[in-house]
Amino acid sequence: MPGLPPMVAPPAELVDDPLTAPDATNAVGTALKQVLEERLRQSRTVDPVFARELAACLTALVERGGKRLRTAFTHCGWRAAGGSGDTTAVLHTGAALELLQACALVHDDVMDGSVQRRGAPAVHVQLARQHWASGMHGSAESFGTSAAVLAGDLALAWADDLLTETAFGTPHGRRLHEEWRAMRTEMVAGQYLDLRAQARRSSAVDEALAIATLKSALYTVARPLTLGASLAGADDQVLDALRAAGRCAGLAFQLRDDLLGAFGDPAHTGKPADDDLRSRKLTYLLAVALRLADAADDHRAAATLAPDADPGSEHAVERMRAALTRTGARELVETKIEELTDMAIGHFEATGADHAVRLEFAALVQRATGVASRRAEEVA
């Protein structure tokens, strides 16, 4: 197809089974690097300034990486559906997911006003600094925000191009694209509902769970699993089992992320630990804490955690953390994560995947949630 780079083959030693989840995580970095190099070359032919300032900034974010969990789950879904042999399409689907993730992160940081991502300044902050350093006119902050929106759009375009190319190269491309298309819409819906909840100062538990599912759980675990399975020509029974397993594991992942957003160490997470608290973002953790505070007539905790409370100083954030713990919300969320991981392992067993693949999934879920499932011990 004109304008698209050729499929980038993974390292020769990784083409044939067995390819483990850690192997897939490492191999997608190689494939992604080659894709990004080709995209940058294309960008230079469009305009060297665009390539140097915007495309290169996006590329740097992608190359700083992350856990590459989506690629690992894609590979796991492929194996669960009987996939074997050439892994090129799997790795390219994983690379497309990494680019889509970059789009989500860039836009999310703009909307949340976050200043740090993956241990470095967020893209809109970097672009604002470029504006200031170059002595441009106008607001550096406004420029950075506007340019970051374009960077996120560029990441989405690159992701769609790569997924489309991959779909054209597989006999199961139509099903692959259907999964991808559904995932993109779910992501946008989740982000919109998140914004809407903040604007409405909502504190509903069900609403928090719906946002977590759409915004994170589906596109972090459930859809990657079914994207991988689609590449292997999975039937509806396997796809349904993977969707159920992925929804549970993905939600557990998001609840863990909520806890890290409130109590995590920025040195380990690569992002500030108080953004969600200061903005009173509707998380399951916060919604549960407010419900528990109301049930216990803990008016001090309710006032501290209320959506319309003034975030104030660092001391106010510490009071929020204390309230999240005192109400029992922190402990309840930990329990919910454990329950969801057990459910995920149970649903995955319905795929009929062999023992090695079930072990791989259990290990990935533990990596995503920080919890060793009791059912995973039974699998082992």
Score class of each variant (00 low, 15 high):
255 L>V: 09
255 L>D: 07
256 R>N: 03
256 R>T: 05
256 R>I: 00
256 R>M: 05
257 D>C: 05
257 D>W: 04
257 D>G: 10
257 D>M: 09
258 D>I: 08
258 D>L: 00
258 D>P: 05
259 L>H: 05
259 L>T: 00
259 L>Q: 14
259 L>N: 09
259 L>P: 07
260 L>M: 11
260 L>W: 13
260 L>K: 01
261 G>L: 03
262 A>S: 14
262 A>R: 15
262 A>L: 13
263 F>H: 11
263 F>N: 08
263 F>L: 14
263 F>A: 07
263 F>C: 09
263 F>P: 01
263 F>V: 04
263 F>K: 07
264 G>N: 11
264 G>L: 04
264 G>W: 08
264 G>R: 06
264 G>T: 03
265 D>A: 12
265 D>T: 14
265 D>R: 15
265 D>I: 15
265 D>W: 14
266 P>N: 12
266 P>I: 06
267 A>E: 13
267 A>F: 08
269 T>E: 00
269 T>K: 07
269 T>Y: 04
269 T>S: 11
269 T>Q: 06
269 T>W: 00
270 G>R: 09
271 K>R: 13
271 K>E: 09
271 K>P: 02
272 P>D: 13
273 A>T: 12
274 D>V: 10
274 D>A: 08
274 D>M: 01
274 D>P: 00
275 D>H: 10
276 D>P: 12
277 L>H: 02
277 L>S: 10
278 R>S: 14
278 R>P: 14
278 R>G: 15
278 R>A: 14
279 S>M: 08
279 S>A: 15
279 S>W: 04
279 S>R: 15
279 S>E: 15
280 R>W: 04
281 K>R: 15
281 K>C: 07
282 L>K: 08
282 L>E: 01
282 L>V: 04
282 L>P: 02
282 L>S: 02
282 L>G: 04
283 T>Y: 05
283 T>I: 00
283 T>W: 04
283 T>E: 09
284 Y>M: 03
284 Y>D: 02
284 Y>K: 00
285 L>R: 03
285 L>A: 06
285 L>N: 01
286 L>C: 08
286 L>Y: 00
286 L>G: 02
287 A>R: 10
287 A>E: 10
287 A>S: 10
288 V>E: 15
288 V>H: 09
288 V>M: 11
